[in-house]
Amino acid sequence: MYEVNYHRATSVEEAAALFAKAGDAKFVAGGQTLIPTMKQHLAAPSDLVDLRHITALKGITVSGGQVTIGAGTTHAEVAGSAQLRSACAAICDLAGHIGDPAVRHMGTLGGSIANNDPAADYPAAMVALNAAIRTNKRTLAAEDFFTGLFETALEADEIIVSVSFQAPAKCAYAKFPNPASRYAMAGVFVARGTDGSVRVGVTGAGSSGVFRHSGMERALAANWSTGALDNVSVDENMMLSDIHGDAAYRANLVKVMAKRAVAAAG
């Protein structure tokens, strides 16, 4: 790792101020992606502003179906929240399968979505749940937030504070892990709103990162069943292709995972 200057913030305002004073700074939350990236010399910020000790970024509230999760909430905390599980178990299950237990103790929701790894799990959920992503500057819809591979609408000095969504009537996430990295080769989050509307978020498989699958959404809105997906096609041209699986295989996985998610959602 190259040399770096570390700053610990205890409030969002302090974090923003520390960031503004530094040269080429980055925010670090759990650090489970950033620290390895820095170790490999693939990132070289001059300064790190640590958000992990900011109380205001932590916590989960559920009120009348409205869910808010602090950006600094760890995957383990999301996975283990009984309150959240009663409102939206799928997001708990998703968080409980990110990385491994030690990674889940450090890694945070905010860190995950800010990084927008195309194989990360949370972006699929954010898109399917139509989550609102609140920062210290504004609130963004999830679809406007994720802009491409490792790209988001966040400005460099912008801090994610929380994400909020209305718990859907039914939802589930199904993931097919890469045999090596265990990141998603295809992860599909399906959500059916209380009004019957359906959103399907797909991660891992797409060559441009997370995306919604409108064909699946239409089919499932008309008929919420696994059979409804039989005749929906997944465009291979949109899929990643690598040593772990070609585009045809990934397209198949997207459909299989979507069916499994629908089945799990009930």
Binding site: F176, P179, H244, G245, D246, Y249, N252
Partner: peptide, 8 residues
Amino acid sequence: ASPSRVWA
């Protein structure tokens, strides 16, 4: 025999 190869 990775999943993708077996599937193929």
